[in-house]
Amino acid sequence: MDIRSDEPDLRALMLAGLDGDEAAHKALLNKLSVHLRAYFKRQLVRIGKGPTDAEDLLQETLIALHTRRHTYDRSQLLTPWVYAIARYRLVDYLRRTKASIGEVPVEEAPDLFADDDATIVDSRLDLHKLMARLAPKTRRAIEMVKLDGLSVREAAARSGMSESAVKVSVHRGLRTLSLLVGSGTAHEDR
């Protein structure tokens, strides 16, 4: 399936998500996951990396797509924006893991994507370990709003912060998480 043929659907979901439609945003991330997982598997198999690495990279990319949503220009196509971010994360990942495409001969690469999305593996990303590195106030805000599903108003009442302070904390926290993930310190073993 070609991602470009999905462009109108994906773009509609993105625009709805920017306006605050949760279901649309989750649907978008789910649909993009299918394309991106296949893309990363294909790229990583060439340097002898497996599905878990691809899943790590996929999740980093999803976090990046989410925290950089404001850089999408509503008048432009969505898929070039998505792929620019995916490519950036891939290049950053390769640099970080000190691997380069040329290092592993092609014939050593196992034929992994024969059954592409049949098995979906867990990533090494550990959200709770990551969260432990945030400032306590920020962590509480993210726990309440993003993990426990409290509304911003409820979270504000419980924590004694103002609603806008909760929103700012969540936003900052997610950005910090995306930087932690990108720095490669977020994984269980590497």
Binding site: D21, E22, K26, R37, L62, R69, H70, G149, V170, L174
Partner: peptide
Amino acid sequence: MKTDELINVLGANLEVVKGGQLR
């Protein structure tokens, strides 16, 4: 972590993004 879980976390209480932030 499963990717589905991550997507649920990211989508929970979704923030509205206003245009013109970068400008």
